[in-house]
């Protein structure tokens, strides 16, 4: 079995998260941390990026490490306000990874939308809600087994797909050409709006290339997403109470 090695880190990771999820009786965090570290070490065998520039590698490990740590703390923290803050830190770390992979606009937009607006709204709601209640059910995970198994099945599927695809480092056939944001697959190539990628190397990941790719290669997807958002907006307005019925 070629991909059997993937099972070890996924199972170990599941064990760590399952152990760390908040329970009625507090458990040892150190044990969970050790299992989680073992899972990451097991994963490194398959997904370790090729070592290159020492600064870039250092940044990569800094951002990815803080992303994983903050994400774990986000789902295992008992205090919802802290959980929201850890989520913000996760977003920032992931944005750092985007930046390392020459996607500055994606990084800035994610910070503005997620860290700047959505997490702030979460915090807003959490602070307004009663979070000082000391009821037992507020301090433990509701369905720890189901939730953690489901999420790790999804993570396993994602890792499997990534391993099969091989990334743009050469294993796959559809390699991103110069000036392209990602590899364009065959169906997008057939798109009549597609334009040849820019040959200017400094433009890789710039807004010009990103915009051109979005509005030519992925035009239908962008239009579809826009329509879905419009429908959602109309739905929100329809659901909201009329002024005559009294608003907030």
């Amino acid at each position: 079995m070629k991909n059997g090695a993937l099972l070890i880190p996924v199972c170990l990771g599941w064990l760590a998260i399952f152990w760390l999820l908040p329970r009625a009786k507090p458990r040892s965090r150190i044990l969970g941390a050790i299992i989680g570290l073992a899972a990451l070490l097991a994963l490194q065998a398959t997904f370790l990026p090729p070592a290159g520039n020492i600064v870039r590698d250092g940044m990569f490990y800094l951002f990815s490490g803080s992303a994983i740590l903050a994400a774990t703390l986000m789902i295992t923290d008992r205090n919802p306000v802290y959980a929201a803050l850890w989520f913000a830190l996760t977003t920032l770390s992931v944005c750092g990874l985007f930046l390392l992979n020459s996607a500055p606009f994606l990084s800035a937009a994610t910070i503005i939308v997620y860290a700047g607006a959505i997490v702030v709204t979460f915090l807003f709601v959490i602070m307004l809600a009663q979070q000082t209640a000391n009821a037992n059910y507020d301090h433990r995970a509701v369905q720890p087994v189901l939730a953690s198994v489901m999420s790790f099945v999804m993570l396993g599927a994602l890792l499997f797909a990534l391993q099969e695809w091989g990334g743009i480092d050469g294993k796959a056939d559809d390699v991103a050409r110069e000036g392209q944001f990602v590899a364009v697959d065959a169906s997008s190539k057939a798109n009549q709006f597609s334009q040849p990628p820019s040959s200017n190397k400094t433009e890789i990941g710039s807004m010009r290339v990103l915009g051109r790719s979005l509005f030519s290669d992925y035009l239908y997807v962008v239009e579809l997403a826009g329509t879905v958002l419009l429908i959602a907006t109309i739905g929100a307005i329809a659901i909201a109470p009329r002024r005559s019925q009294g608003t907030l």
Binding site: V81, L85, A88, P104, I112, A115, G116, V120
Partner: peptide
């Protein structure tokens, strides 16, 4: 040479509200 100067400022500026929110809470 930051290609996205304005967007960068807005991204950082949107983080500034954390100071106020956390301080107040």
């Amino acid at each position: 040479g930051v290609d996205l100067g304005i967007v960068f400022i807005f991204a950082i500026g949107s983080l500034a509200v954390y100071g106020i929110i956390l301080g107040g809470w």
